[in-house]
Simulated scan of single mutants.
Amino acid sequence: MIGCLLIHGFTGAPYEVEPLAEFLKERTDWKISVPTLPGHGVPGSLKGVHYQEWINHAEAELTKLIDTCDTVYVVGFSMGGMIASYLAAQYPVDRLILLSAAAYYVNPKQLAVDIKEIIKDYLRGKLQENELFLRYKRKITETPFAATLQFRRLVSFIKPLLHQVNVPTFIAQGECDGIVPPKSAEYLFHTISAKQKKLALFKHSKHLICHCEERDTLFSQVLEFLMEKRTI
């Protein structure tokens, strides 16, 4: 049996990767796991949560799959991509998928474009219909500073370990991502030690890459990568 663990991002929830999870469920008989990291899923629950708790929870879910499956894949979105990289370096993971993985955070150039669009909708009286504004507002108002600090500590803890990743890896990044800049994907591609690796940039996709207009192409590429033969 094949198991696949999908890990969401910081301040997010399983909905961030659920479109991909559903795509895989419809086309495979794999055992799919999409856990909710501690402090996530319920607004206001991140206070007092340490980054190691996020790693520990993902480790526990991965161990369940390893115990019951012959082959295990790990998919990580944003912060979840960093956690997924850690797991791939520490456990017998067969393939790794990194989606908008947050080795670097905030893309000033794209963020400026997003803010201009928010201002336009504000002037039109359509601010509450702007999905980006609502998402940024939620992150700012519902995320304790201490939690953001824990996120940054997690990234600092995992980045020195990236060179230990040597399993086949697929890295996907939206070029219109205002949260994670494309240089993050490029850094990951050049830093991990995997001999079999692929970097795919999606011209029109923003941070929530599993919800963007190019998602069908992304999902097809992910499935193809997971099912292709490993090269030595």
Rank of each mutant, 00 (worst) to 15 (best):
T169P: 13
C69V: 03
E213M: 07
R230D: 14
H40N: 15
P43R: 08
T68Y: 01
P38V: 15
H190P: 00
L223K: 11
V49F: 01
L37G: 10
E228T: 14
T36A: 04
Q52N: 09
I32T: 02
E117Y: 01
N107W: 10
L132M: 08
I158C: 03
N130A: 08
V106D: 11
Q90L: 15
H163Q: 07
K195F: 09
T169D: 15
T63I: 14
A21E: 04
R230T: 11
D29P: 02
E213T: 06
F219R: 01
A84F: 00
E186H: 02
R153Q: 09
L62N: 04
K25M: 06
S45I: 15
Q221K: 13
K197C: 12
A101Q: 05
E142V: 03
K159D: 02
V72P: 05
G44E: 14
K126L: 13
Q196P: 06
V180E: 13
L132S: 10
H204N: 15
A102R: 00
F219Q: 06
R27V: 12
G39F: 05
E129M: 14
R152Q: 14
K116A: 08
R95Q: 10
T148I: 14
N166G: 11
V106S: 11
A102I: 03
A102S: 14
K25E: 06
T141R: 10
A185F: 00
R95P: 08
A101P: 00
G3H: 01
L161Q: 12
A13Q: 11
H50F: 05
E117H: 08
I55M: 11
R138M: 03
R230P: 01
